[in-house]
Design a protein around this nucleic acid. Structure first.
Lengths: 271, 271
DNA sequence: AAGTGGTCTAGACCACAAC
DNA sequence: TTGTGGTCTAGACCACTTA
C-alpha cells in the first residue's frame, strides 16, 4: 500500500475536457479568430457526448471572453490577445479658470441628462464624510463617441451645495462636471482630483445600455474633487472593459515632499 | 388593424423571469446578503418550472457577481454594492537612489520567480518599438499578502539589456522590479513611469492560480518605465478585480507646461 | 442519513437568418 | 427549406458536507 497519498487535482469532467481542448485550440491558433467553431451537434458527435456537455463548455469559454455567439451563424472565435482599441489618458487641464479633459474626445449625450435626487449610500457617505442617507444632487447621462458608450454620473451632497453657496441648491440641474469644477475654482475653492479604478461584471440592464458583449467586465472610475481637505464631488464613469484602456502618468515622489494623499477612507479589513 | 407596429422588446423567457425576480430581490434586500437562496429544487417547485430553468437563471446571476455557490451549503447572496476591501495607492517613491512602492504592503512570493525567455507579442513589440518576436527577459512570480494574490511579470527586451550594458544580458535572473529601476537610475538613466489599466475575464488556470471567485474580472496593470523617450521595461500585474481598487492622484496640468505624454502607441481604430 | 449543487442523457420545440 | 444556437422537460447518478 502506498504511504504517500496521491495528489488531488480538479475533477476532469467531460465539459472540462471539451473546454480545455477548445481553449488550447483557440490560444494556439488552431481555431483561428473570427472563424466559426464546428456546430454544437457536430462537436457532440465528434466527442461522443450530449449537446448539453458541449454547451456547458462553450458557456465557460464565452465567460472567458474567448468565444462570441452569433445566432444562427454559429459560435465565433474571439481574439484572446486583443487589447482594447482605445486608450484614455486620464487627466485634467486647467487654463484661464477652465477645466478640460486631457483626452480630446467629444462625447455626445444619447439622452438628456437625468437629475435624480439620490440618497447617499454607505460608501458614498464615507467618502464625503456625511451621514448615510443624506440626499445628494446627481446628474446622470449616457454618452457615446466613436461607437463607444459610457455612463457618467456626477454626485454632490446637499450639504456641500449649501455650505459653499453653490447655485445648485435651488436649481438642481447640475451642468457637466468640468463646468462644476470651474465654478469651484473661480469661487476660491481650488480642487485636487483623485481617481479610483475598479472592475466588476455588468448587472442587468447595464449590458444593454452600454452595449456590452457577454463575457466582458465593466471599468468603474470614481473621480473625486477635493478642496481644503473636503471631498465636494464624485464623478463616476462606467465603460465597457474590452474597448478602452486607461493611462495614468505615475507620480514618482521624493520623501522630502511627500505625496499629498487624499483623505484616507476607512475600509473594512475583512474580505 | 393598428398602423403603428408594437414595440419589440427582449423575449421574456422563463429563465429570464426567474433571473429578474431574483436580481430584484437581491438588489432590494429581500434576499439579504450572506444568506442562502432557497434550494434549486424548491425554487423549481415554487415557479413550476424544471430545475434546468432555475440553474440557468442562477448561472446568469453568478456571472453578474450577485450570487456565489458554496456546495453543499447552497447558493449565497453576495453584496452587490460591496466595494473592494483593499485600496492600492499607485505610485513610486525615490529616495537615495532607491525606488519604493507607495503602498507599504509586503508581498510574499508563493513560488520562486520563474525566468522564462519569452518572445515579444505584437502589442509588446509595439510598446518597446522592437520587431515582433524579439526575445525578452522575463521574471514571473505569484505573490500573496493579507490573503490576496497577484501575479507580477517583468519584461525587458534583449536589445535593451544589451544596449544599456545591463548585468542581465548574461545572467537572465532579473531581480524584483524596484531593484531593476534602481539600477537604471544609478547608471545615468532616470526613469518616468506610466500605468495602463484594463479589465478582462480570467482565462483557464488564472482562476485557480489567483483564487478568483467566479463572476469576478481581472484587473491588468501595465507599468512602463521610460528613459530618454525609450521604454525599457514593462511590469505587468494581475489582481482579482473584486478585492482591490486602484487609486491615482490625477495630474492637473496647465497648458504652459504641457504634460509630457509618453510615446504614443499606435492603436487600431477599428473595433 | 439527508440535502445540496454538479454532471449528464435523450429527447423536444422554437426563432432566426441565410440559401 | 435548412441549420444554427436557445430554451425546456424529465429523468438519473454523483460528491460533498453537515447534522
Amino acid at each position: 500500500m502506498p504511504r504517500t497519498p496521491p495528489q488531488i487535482t480538479e475533477p476532469v469532467t467531460r465539459q472540462r475536457q471539451v473546454a480545455d481542448y477548445l481553449r488550447d485550440g483557440i490560444l494556439s491558433g488552431d481555431f483561428p479568430a473570427g472563424q466559426p467553431l464546428p456546430s454544437e451537434e457536430r462537436l457532440a458527435d465528434l466527442f461522443g457526448v450530449s449537446r448539453h456537455v458541449i454547451r456547458q463548455a462553450v458557456t465557460t469559454l464565452v465567460g472567458e471572453g474567448l468565444l462570441i455567439v452569433r445566432r444562427p451563424h454559429g459560435t465565433i472565435v474571439r481574439d484572446p490577445h486583443a487589447r482594447p482599441a482605445h486608450l484614455d489618458h486620464r487627466g485634467l487641464t486647467l487654463a484661464d479658470g477652465h477645466h478640460t479633459e486631457t483626452e480630446p474626445v467629444t462625447w455626445q449625450d444619447i439622452d438628456p441628462p437625468a437629475f435624480v435626487r439620490a440618497d447617499a449610500t454607505a460608501a458614498q457617505a464615507d467618502l464625503f464624510n456625511i451621514p448615510p442617507g443624506q440626499p445628494m444632487l446627481t446628474r446622470d447621462v449616457l454618452q457615446q463617441a466613436n461607437g463607444l458608450r459610457r455612463s457618467v454620473r456626477l454626485h454632490m451632497p446637499f450639504s456641500v451645495a449649501a455650505d459653499l453657496d453653490t447655485p445648485w441648491l435651488d436649481d438642481p440641474h447640475l451642468p457637466e462636471p468640468v463646468q462644476v469644477y470651474d465654478w469651484f475654482h473661480s469661487h476660491g475653492h481650488p480642487l485636487t482630483f483623485t481617481e479610483y479604478v475598479r472592475a466588476r461584471m455588468p448587472v442587468g440592464d447595464e449590458t444593454t445600455a452600454l452595449r456590452i458583449t457577454p463575457g466582458t467586465p465593466l471599468l468603474v472610475i470614481a473621480r473625486t474633487a477635493t478642496t481644503a481637505g473636503r471631498v465636494v464631488t464624485l464623478e463616476q464613469t462606467r465603460i465597457p472593459g474590452d474597448q478602452t484602456e486607461l493611462a495614468y502618468p505615475l507620480t514618482t515622489t521624493s520623501p522630502a515632499a511627500p505625496a499629498s494623499k487624499p483623505a484616507t477612507r476607512t475600509r473594512r479589513t475583512t474580505r
